[in-house]
Design a protein around this nucleic acid. Structure first.
Lengths: 336, 336
DNA sequence: CTGAAAGCGCTAACAA
DNA sequence: TTGTTAGCGCTTTCAG
């Protein structure tokens, strides 16, 4: 019958005839104790089925090697790419991501941040720059590096790795106007929840206004995140309410693809009858027929840069600087 | 100037004039101490900016409330749905997901499992039923509930919530043969890495053989996961190597959609010239034109059931039983 | 290169 | 309802 309790360093110490401290050193690194002792310890550990207890280590050393991360949704290729880039970058330094989903809701985000901070992460990465006052306070009081991503926040709490969603859309509007489109619409979600979506709509309105064009062709597709289906439904409404629309910008490639399918169902030709622009450069936009004009915001890059920034700060580089991502307009086949 | 060190329960105890134990009880629940004392403690905590230390709590109580989870890829809507369902289910009981990505590699999975076990999770959920011998041993020795998902493993380590990938594809083959298709192909990834993908290919071969049909139209689309683009490339190869193919089953909806776009680019009509079947019932398959015939495996349901099973086991229900998911064939427009 | 002592912040166990 | 004592398993610190 196997022992009820899992072995500890003390058990290994006893078996090997050394002190627990030596066992600890054996696990910590290569050159802290003699190679022979170390080998004996590691062998004993393996044969006892020892598993290092990160909880005890964390408590004593006050280092968890956790990085807390909040994203709006699990199921979004853009945020998944960011988390992937971040995870790969920090995992190389032995750090673990602690992930939570806000469901595009700042109240849920506050609850989540509180939960995550109890785990004593070494740093926290949040998506977006809008938080409840209490969430802001919690973050400020945590005394760990804080990185806001996917936004260039007006008042950053700590650092940020982001870009201006408004400017990105503005660039697309400028391009569309430049090639001759005048009656341009926007499909996005309800304004209140998704701040990045709102910023994109704002950029759209400002850009059209700057060109002296009407910015009243705004279709709300429901509560974020906007699905492909909601994009299709919004396109149906757009075609009904503003049948003379020449081009439409969608809040994401997913809704843009949905809008494209609606056109296909109605034998409306894209881009000759109507042009479509997306946002986010998802895989689908590069393969669908016709291929989607979109904006690449370097989702994975955001994660990688966030990881680098964070490691640099934790490394004592206190004047590590923010990263501003420059989104790239990618003109493909859904616009002329 | 603010205090350097964050406040502890001892600090709250001092301020409130009670013992640390009473403070601990105040955070634990409603009815352990008098309401007045509790309120005073919670107020003091808030004004001191206290944050509960889950690390210390975990060490002392030997309960981390972590659930470790390994999935092949961050960026896959099916696995994201599973994690979402699991996360929602266990979060209601105060548990936190600890997520890791194997990149479809059992060696990476082994490394990951070792890392995750150091955090002393209460349970571990792995995707798939194939592991390295050492990974198996680590899991068995962990003495926590183990749940294998997305597969009905031949030799389960602990519990499982899964289905037979082979049977699911078999069902689709039976349907296709039933409606008259005879020359049927399969597009999938390299056999070695993705065991679920291999099982699907196996099911394909067995089913065709059972019907007395040739099962030699096998196109390998590269290293898993197979992207939309790789699906398109595989379709191009299929059309070249086996131009008289009547129907093709793809290892996932993503590759199926890619295959569909390749047909669209070549003015090949689906399903009249060639039929396409997918796997996984991703959102895209329900909105693309024409809509994709596919198999729904209840990705989110797998997560929810896994969460329930796990909570039931942790609740002391030692004879909690495995869950076998029944995949549903969804016939839409890409097959006749 | 190795060891002894102490303690990280919390809570189990027992006592009042 | 509240308090006291001890200790979870590791590592910091200091000493050899």
């Amino acid at each position: 019958m196997p022992n009820r309790k899992p072995p500890t360093m003390a058990d290994i110490a006893r078996v090997t005839g050394v002190s627990p401290m030596t066992v600890s050193r054996a696990f910590k690194g290569e050159n802290l104790i003699s190679p022979d002792t170390r080998n004996a310890i590691l062998e004993a550990a393996e044969s006892l089925g020892y598993v290092f207890d990160a909880t005890a280590s964390s408590l004593r050393s006050q280092k968890t090697d956790f990085v807390a991360v909040t994203i709006p949704s699990v199921n979004n290729a853009n945020f998944a790419d960011t988390v992937g880039g971040l995870s790969d970058t920090v995992a190389a330094h032995g750090m673990q991501i602690l992930l939570g989903y806000t469901n595009y809701d700042v109240v849920e985000e506050e609850r989540l941040i509180e939960q995550l901070l109890r785990r004593k992460p070494q740093a926290i990465v949040v998506t977006g720059g809008k938080h409840t006052p209490r969430a802001r306070r919690l973050l400020e009081n945590a005394h760990i590096p804080i990185i806001e991503t996917w936004d260039a926040p007006g008042e950053p709490i700590g650092h940020y790795v982001g870009f201006s969603n408004a400017n990105a859309v503005r660039e697309m509007v400028d391009h569309l106007v430049g090639v001759g489109y005048r009656k341009i619409a926007f499909i996005g979600g309800d304004a209140s929840r998704d701040t990045r979506g709102s910023d994109r709509r704002l950029g759209f309105i400002e850009a059209l206004t700057n060109h002296g064009l009407d910015a009243n062709r705004l279709i709300s597709a429901g509560v974020p995140p906007i699905s492909m289906r909601e994009g299709a439904e919004a396109m149906a409404r757009l075609l009904k309410d503003f049948p003379d629309t020449e081009a439409v910008i969608c809040v994401s490639d997913l809704s843009a693809f949905g809008a494209l399918t609606e056109c296909q169902r109605r034998q409306i030709s894209v881009p000759s009858d109507i042009a479509i622009g997306g946002f986010g450069d998802y895989e689908i936009g590069d393969i669908c027929v016709p291929r989607l004009t979109t904006i690449n915001v370097g989702a994975r890059q955001i994660g990688v840069e966030t990881g680098r920034l964070l490691l640099s700060i934790l490394d004592g580089n206190s004047d590590a600087s923010n990263v501003t991502i420059v989104p790239r307009l990618i003109v493909r086949e859904t616009t002329r």
